[in-house]
Design a protein around this nucleic acid. Structure first.
Lengths: 198, 198
DNA sequence: TTACTTCATATGGTTTACCATTTACAGATT
DNA sequence: AATCTGTAAATGGTAAACCATATGAAGTAA
């Protein structure tokens, strides 16, 4: 068993609630309620929330208290660019660092995407798309980078639910296949052309 | 005046101490000492430290307590790759987003680098180099990305003090000039060739 | 001298209580 | 009816105290 203290426990719990969207964007976290719920002290909750704040998942209000992050359009754009940059950088590194296993995993996902596209399963396709890009970033072989990317991804998808058009699913799947091909060929410019969707 | 509470005050103070290397890597932060020093409560210190932990500047020890982050070689490599990816991604975005002001600022720095190189001022050159790359990342026009980059930079430079060889200063300055030229010409592949020093 | 035991101190973890401010609601006043 | 106002509840900020454990020093036995 991992020996975790109360504040860490609270941190994990609250984090889970945020990630799983049990608490919506912009909502206040009331300390006493959480303290009761998780059977920990208010001080532990505050510690947990502070940690989450450092992580960027929470912000503290002007009049005190913690709130789930919610981005205004400008911040959202800013973060979008950051994520874009990370993905491009990751792809570049992936050219050198991607393992055979990574590529196999990517191919697996693309096959899945084709199936989902055929059946117009947009939600599933969206999930697969997310996963594909995460694996691509993971191929750069940097846990830290992946963590950052996931965090950015979460914050963006929480505000702007960029839904796919069912019509373009097939096209998108093909695009992802091209990414893999470029990766296999170690062709950077071709890879970047596919990755940077701007 | 910004109304900041005690824990935020402590956070700022401690952060400054870490950034300015007043506390060295791996060193423990004793809560009572800091609480006395900053005239705040221990709870505030713990909150501040938790926030710093979320930010990645501190880690909590197995037997409790907060310690300034110190990376083992593997973690250092991991983070190095992350920073590399960010810089490459930022450069790619900078091609589209860099403003005339950004470029002017970069040119200013490069001129400074030449002067420093001429006088073999390695320390100053190192600073200028750091600044150059930060401005390059800033040219991607994403505050978030810049923040991430700076954080990675800090953690890396705290462990591995990558000193420059006086002989190569001139060469390096020239390299940075090429980066600017590529940026001006909006030539991605040329830019990446200069940026990715691997 | 060396190694082991013991005890005091340092340090972090946890809990409770109290205070200040904000918020919300109910009642009064126009 | 609309609005103002005062009071009570909600909520966060701050402080102090207590306990458990780890650390290190001192003393003692081999």
């Amino acid at each position: 068993m991992a020996k975790i203290n109360k504040s860490e426990q609270a941190y994990l719990e609250i984090r889970k609630m945020i990630i799983s969207r049990q608490i919506e964007s912009g909502q206040r976290l009331v300390e006493r309620t959480l303290a009761d719920r998780f059977d920990v002290n208010r001080a532990d909750i505050r510690q947990a929330c502070s940690k989450l704040e450092g992580e960027g998942l929470l912000v503290s209000g002007a009049k005190g208290g913690f709130f789930v992050i919610s981005l205004n359009p400008q911040q959202s754009d800013d973060l979008f660019r950051a994520r874009q940059a990370i993905e491009v950088g990751a792809a570049t590194l992936a050219i050198k660092n991607a393992t055979a296993k990574d590529i196999a995993r990517l191919e697996e996902i693309v096959e899945l995407m084709y199936s989902l596209a055929k059946n117009s399963m947009v939600e599933g396709f969206y999930e697969a798309d997310l996963l594909f890009h995460e694996i691509l970033v993971a191929s750069a072989q940097s846990e830290k980078l992946l963590k950052i990317y996931k965090s950015a991804n979460f914050m963006l998808t929480s505000s702007t639910s960029g839904k796919q058009n069912p019509k373009t699913l097939q096209v998108d799947a093909r695009k992802h296949k091209k990414i893999i091909q470029a990766l296999k060929k170690r062709n950077l410019s071709e890879l970047l052309k596919q990755v940077s969707w701007f």
